[in-house]
Every structure is written in structure tokens, then in C-alpha cells.
């Protein structure tokens, strides 16, 4: 696979990542701003939930990125284990922090929506509990990756953990289908959307906006990690 090998070269990666980062960041921020403005002023309230329906414009992207982040982390982990590309390891570690943050935002926006809608901040139902587990798994990955790096490990153990945590993704996705849950079933499926078009459209902006923003943060963190490694290598040469 020449494309992976080409991007696995840190110098070539930086050549692409450096100009790409501000584009992803600012286009992402603009899309989020448009989506937030439209979602707050241009859409009707829901017939049952009233105004609190607008939380969905943040809740859905954070849920998608909390889970999508772990998918990326798992793919990077497999790439690292099989092809041993150091960039894949850096990518996995770079994804973990924003991934954990978005999982947390998903849980908190869900709680804020749940209070007026269900009448409770939190219940131990299948969807809520499995998403909380994903948040904890992110934290565990961060602790493990840091401990591994401090011990001078090669990152194989966190990569294995990254693959193992993938189990949670289908559980979160299908929890509302397999079990009776307080959380409603999926609104958007391959066969269409149960969210009326008049309410749905700003979600496209915030969903794509947060995704680009997430990618920009990951690229920034990867560049910072590469720069850090470079500094350390230089210091080691100075000492030697």
C-alpha cells in the first residue's frame, strides 16, 4: 500500500498536515457557527419537547465523534500493530483526548436534554451506560498510553487496548434495539429520518463542522507530538 507508506513518513505527513490544519479548523468553525445560528433561530420547536429539541444539534455530533473517534483510534491501532508505522501510534494517541472530550460532551448534553424530557438527569439504561463505559475506556487508554510511554514501551499494549475497546461501538449502536431502554431508538437510519426535515437540516452543518474541527484538533496534536519527539531526540544528541 504505497499511499499509507507515503503518509507514514513524518516529513511528508507534515507537508500535508501543516497547510491542511487551518483549513479544517476554520471551515469547521464556520459550519458550526452557521449550524448553531440556524438551529437556534431558523427551526421550529418540537411538538412534544418544545425548545429543548435544539440540543440535538450538539448532542448528535458529539455522540458521532465520540464513537467515530474510537473507530479512528482502533484503525490506527491495527495499522500500528500490523505495519508498525510510528505515525499510527501518534495518531491513536492524538485522537484519544478529543474523543474523550466529545464522549463527555455527549453524556452531558444528553443529561441536560434528559432532565426536561424524561424527567431525570441520568438512568442506568443500556445506551447511557454503554456510552459512559466508552468515556471511561478513553480515560483508561490515555492512562495506559502515558504509562507505556513513560516506561519506554513501544506502544503495543495501548494499541491492543485500542482494538479491544472497539467491542463497545456495536453495543452502543444497538443497545436501543436489543434492549428496552429509556433512550429512544435511532432516528436516522438507512431507510430515512424520523426527524422532520424542517428540524433536521442544521444538523448537517453542525455534524460536518464538528467533524472537521475534530480532524483539525487531531492534526494539531499529531504535529505537537512529532515536534515533541524531535526536541527530545535533539536533547539526547546534545547529552551524548
Amino acid at each position: 500500500m504505497p499511499s499509507i507508506h507515503a503518509l507514514a513518513n513524518p516529513a511528508r505527513f507534515l507537508k500535508v498536515a501543516r497547510p491542511l490544519t487551518p483549513w479544517l479548523f476554520w471551515v469547521g468553525v464556520a459550519l458550526i457557527a452557521i449550524g448553531a445560528w440556524a438551529g437556534l433561530t431558523r427551526t421550529p420547536a418540537d411538538y412534544l419537547q418544545g425548545e429543548s429539541v435544539r440540543i440535538l444539534y450538539i448532542h448528535v455530533p458529539t455522540a458521532w465523534l465520540g464513537m467515530g473517534g474510537w473507530s479512528g483510534l482502533a484503525i490506527a491501532s491495527v495499522t500500528y500493530l500490523v505495519w508498525r508505522h510510528p505515525l499510527a501510534h501518534i495518531a491513536a494517541r492524538a485522537i484519544a483526548v478529543p474523543g474523550a472530550l466529545f464522549a463527555f460532551l455527549c453524556l452531558s448534553t444528553g443529561a441536560i436534554w434528559g432532565r426536561p424530557t424524561w424527567g431525570t438527569w441520568w438512568q442506568w439504561d443500556g445506551r447511557l451506560t454503554s456510552m459512559l463505559l466508552l468515556f471511561f475506556v478513553y480515560l483508561a487508554y490515555l492512562a495506559l498510553a502515558r504509562a507505556d510511554a513513560e516506561r519506554g514501551g513501544d506502544g503495543r499494549i495501548p494499541a491492543l487496548f485500542g482494538i479491544g475497546g472497539t467491542v463497545l461501538l456495536p453495543i452502543i449502536r444497538y443497545s436501543v434495539v436489543w434492549w428496552n431502554t429509556l433512550h429512544q431508538g435511532p432516528s436516522i437510519t438507512v431507510s430515512g429520518s424520523a426527524i422532520d426535515g424542517a428540524i433536521l437540516w442544521p444538523l448537517a452543518f453542525t455534524l460536518s463542522g464538528f467533524t472537521l474541527f475534530f480532524a483539525a484538533v487531531v492534526l494539531m496534536r499529531m504535529r505537537a507530538a512529532l515536534a515533541h519527539a524531535q526536541v527530545e531526540a535533539r536533547l539526547r544528541r546534545l547529552v551524548a
Partner: peptide
């Protein structure tokens, strides 16, 4: 008593 919301969202 908790209210359960379904997956349908629509304007009034």
C-alpha cells in the same frame, strides 16, 4: 414516573 420520548421529531 419518567416520560419516554420516541425517535420522531417534528414541528407542531
Amino acid at each position: 414516573i419518567l416520560a419516554k420520548h420516541d425517535e420522531r421529531y417534528m414541528p407542531p
